[in-house]
């Protein structure tokens, strides 16, 4: 009566699932190879001699024996053939971005916390106004911000070329980011109020609650905000290009500075341009590789409505 039929053949839907996985694997493999290709090209080019670039345009990697680090060495040695001021650009970018992330974190977290956990008059109206401001396109505020920057710089002697002044204008506009406010508010909302209330009834001051209880819980959201702030500050082109034009080239961030080498011409400098790009990519790549999963998961949840 009992049958011991072992079905070693796959049933229909399992076959289908296997088919799905193979097709998607092959397709994704092809797509990803194409996707990665520009990076390989960039890396390979940065290792080619200029001569090689001119004579072997089709090969991705340098022909045998012609691998060179000359483009890279240029940065370190400060001599020889290099794109001027690269080290300074890198430093500029690093400083600006670091400060951006720092200020953004502090300002936005504090404000968001206040909106969720404190009661004060007009809280909701202020928040509503802030949300509404997200709909206003950046184009509108660009001009007046620029004129503010220009006028003030003009008015006060020597301010226009003051490094700190320019840096300030690079960093501060992006700090009060309402989107971050929204992100963090979502997270803070998800913390059960009971924890806060029981801490309060135990006698903890508001600041202590913030510092010792809520902040540790918020680590992953904070990291997410930092990541986005980092990437957007490092890669920003529109506003820095506006402010930094006409200023000394030592003021430029690396993103702005590279625009000069982005065209399809100037093949004499391609090798260096590629090497510079690799350099410019390093910080971002490091951050990306370390936090890749968190970044991706965090981005995914911004789309999910609770």
């Amino acid at each position: 009566m009992k049958s011991n039929t072992k079905h070693t053949k796959l049933s229909k839907s399992e076959k289908q699932r296997l088919k799905e996985k193979t097709i998607s694997f092959i397709l994704l493999l092809i797509i990803c190879i194409i996707w990665v290709f520009p990076f390989l090209y960039m890396f390979g080019m940065s290792l080619k001699t200029d001569v090689d670039i001119g004579t072997n345009p089709t090969s991705i990697f340098p022909s045998a024996g012609n691998w060179t680090l000359e483009h890279y060495l240029g940065f370190i040695s400060m001599k020889g053939d290099r794109i001027d001021d690269l080290p300074i650009w890198m430093i500029n970018s690093i400083v600006v971005t670091f400060l951006s992330v720092l200020f953004t974190l502090i300002v936005d977290t504090l404000a968001s916390y206040a909106f969720v956990f404190f009661k004060f008059k007009g809280k909701n109206t202020i928040f509503a106004i802030l949300l509404l401001s997200m709909t206003i396109p950046t184009a509108i505020s660009m001009t007046p911000m620029f004129t503010m920057y220009a006028s003030v710089g003009q008015a006060i002697e020597g301010l226009a070329n003051n490094r700190a002044y320019v840096m300030m204008w690079l960093i501060l506009p992006g700090v009060a980011n309402v989107f971050n406010l929204y992100l963090m508010k979502n997270f803070f909302d998800s913390i059960p109020k009971d924890i806060v209330e029981s801490a309060r009834s135990d006698g903890a001051s508001d600041f202590k609650i913030f510092y010792k209880i809520v902040l540790p819980l918020a680590k992953s959201t904070l990291m997410l905000v930092s990541l986005f702030a980092f990437v957007s500050s490092w890669n920003d082109l529109l506003w820095p290009q506006l402010i930094l034009s006409g200023k000394d080239s030592t003021f430029q961030t690396i993103t702005v500075a590279l625009t000069g080498y982005a065209s399809g011409d100037s093949w004499e400098y391609k090798g260096i341009a590629m090497a510079t790009s690799v350099f410019a990519l390093i910080p971002i790549l490091i951050v990306f590789i370390i936090t890749q999963n968190k970044m991706i998961d965090g981005l995914a949840t911004t789309g999910v409505k609770r």
Binding site: W35, F39, M42, D236, V256, A262, S277, I284
Partner: peptide
């Protein structure tokens, strides 16, 4: 695959310009 597809999103447009300008 996921990481590779997402990777270009974190680089700046100027680098994209350098790359595609050369290609």
């Amino acid at each position: 695959f996921r990481a590779i597809i997402y990777l270009p999103s974190v680089i700046s447009i100027t680098i994209v310009g350098v790359l595609f300008g050369a290609i």
